[in-house]
C-alpha cells in the first residue's frame, strides 16, 4: 500500500497554486487538501496522478466569515474549525449538525470543507447540505473566478463542475433565517461511517401554520445527493401532520431512481431509508419551526 511515484509541490499562495496548475495542465495533476479521501486512493494506487499540488500551506484559504447573510468559508478550512465555530453554531446549525456526522474527530481535524465538496461522494453530508441550503461555490481557474450554485456544481457520482486546473476557493452558505425549521439526519452502520442513507430538510410555515416553503435533500441512497423538488412542491400549502409526512416519505421512496446497493444495504433497504428519513426530517424540521405534527428535537 504505497503510492506510485508522483511529483509534489506545496505552494504558499493561491496565485502560485493556480500558476502551477496552469504549468502542469498537460500532466495528470491533482490537488491535495486534507487527504482524507485522496491519500487512501493514492496508497491503493486507485489514483495515480503525476503531479500533486498540496494546498495545506495556503493560509488565505482558511477562514470562516459572515458576509451579508452568508457564511463564507475558505476551501481549506478544516471541518473541526467549522464544528468549533461560534459563528456556525449561531448562524447555521444545520451546517454544524452535518459536520458532526462526518467521520470521526480525527478525520475532521484534517478533512476540509472544500475537499468534501470537490470529492462529491454520494454518501457525503456536505454536497447534500449544499443542495439543501442553496450553497454557492467559488472557483478560481486559469480563466479567472467563477461562482457556481450548488445545483450546477454537482454532476453525479464523484463528479463536479471543477476542471482539473480549477481550485475551489470558497464555500458560501446562507445563514439560517429565523423561523426556518431544519433537520439533518442519517443512518449509518456505525457512528462516523459514511451513511447508508441520509436526509436534510428546511421548512417555513405561514401564519396559519401551513407549509410555505419546504426543501428536502437525500444522500447516500443514490449515485449523488439530490433535492426532492417534486415532493417539496406537493407539500407547500399543506397543513403539516403525520399523514402528510408519511405520504411525502412514500413519494420520496418511490421516486428514487437506481438506489445504490452494496454489502451494507440493498437497494430496497435504501428505498426504505429514503422514506423513513424523509418522514423523520420533516417531523423534526416542522417541530423546530414550531408547527403541528412536529417532533421534539432529539426525540429520535
Amino acid at each position: 500500500m504505497k503510492p506510485a511515484r508522483f511529483e509534489y509541490a506545496a505552494p504558499d499562495s493561491l496565485a502560485e497554486a493556480i500558476s502551477l496548475l496552469e504549468q502542469h495542465a498537460d500532466d495528470d495533476v491533482k490537488i491535495l487538501a486534507g487527504g482524507q479521501s485522496l491519500v487512501p486512493l493514492l496508497n491503493m494506487r486507485m489514483a495515480r496522478p503525476e503531479f500533486l499540488i498540496d494546498l495545506n500551506r495556503i493560509a488565505e484559504l482558511q477562514y470562516i466569515r459572515e458576509e451579508a447573510g452568508w457564511l463564507a468559508i475558505g476551501a481549506m478550512t478544516r471541518k473541526r474549525a467549522v464544528e468549533e465555530s461560534e459563528l456556525v453554531r449561531q448562524r447555521q446549525p444545520a451546517l454544524l449538525a452535518a459536520t458532526q456526522l462526518v467521520g470521526h474527530p480525527q478525520i475532521r481535524n484534517r478533512g476540509t470543507v472544500g475537499g468534501s465538496m470537490a470529492h462529491a461522494d454520494p454518501a457525503a453530508e456536505y454536497p447534500a447540505l449544499a443542495l439543501l441550503l442553496g450553497v454557492e461555490l467559488r472557483v478560481a481557474g486559469p480563466g479567472g473566478e467563477r461562482r457556481i450554485p450548488a445545483a450546477d456544481f454537482f454532476h453525479g457520482y464523484l463528479a463536479t463542475a471543477l476542471e482539473p486546473t480549477d481550485v475551489l476557493t470558497e464555500v458560501r452558505i446562507p445563514v439560517l433565517d429565523p423561523g426556518t425549521g431544519w433537520s439533518f439526519l442519517e443512518v449509518a452502520r456505525r457512528h462516523g461511517d459514511f451513511a447508508m442513507g441520509g436526509a436534510g430538510a428546511t421548512v417555513r410555515l405561514d401564519a396559519s401554520g401551513k407549509l410555505s416553503e419546504v426543501r428536502i435533500a437525500l444522500f447516500g441512497v443514490g449515485a449523488a445527493a439530490l433535492r426532492l423538488h417534486d415532493v417539496e412542491r406537493e407539500l407547500v400549502g399543506e397543513q403539516p401532520g403525520e399523514a402528510l409526512f408519511q405520504d411525502a416519505g412514500a413519494r420520496a421512496s418511490q421516486g428514487l431512481e437506481d438506489p445504490l446497493s452494496d454489502v451494507h444495504a440493498s437497494a430496497e433497504y435504501r428505498r426504505n431509508l429514503a422514506r423513513v428519513l424523509t418522514v423523520r426530517v420533516l417531523e423534526e424540521a416542522v417541530g423546530r419551526a414550531g408547527g403541528a405534527g412536529g417532533r421534539e428535537e432529539g426525540s429520535r
Binding site: P40, M44, H104, R189, R190, H191, G192, D193, F194, D262, V263, H264
Partner: peptide, 16 residues
C-alpha cells in the same frame, strides 16, 4: 472479496 478495507469490514469502535 467485497470487504477488503475497513470501510466495509466493520469493527466495533468505542461508540458501539
Amino acid at each position: 472479496i467485497l470487504t477488503s478495507s475497513y470501510m466495509d469490514y466493520l469493527l466495533p469502535t468505542i461508540n458501539e
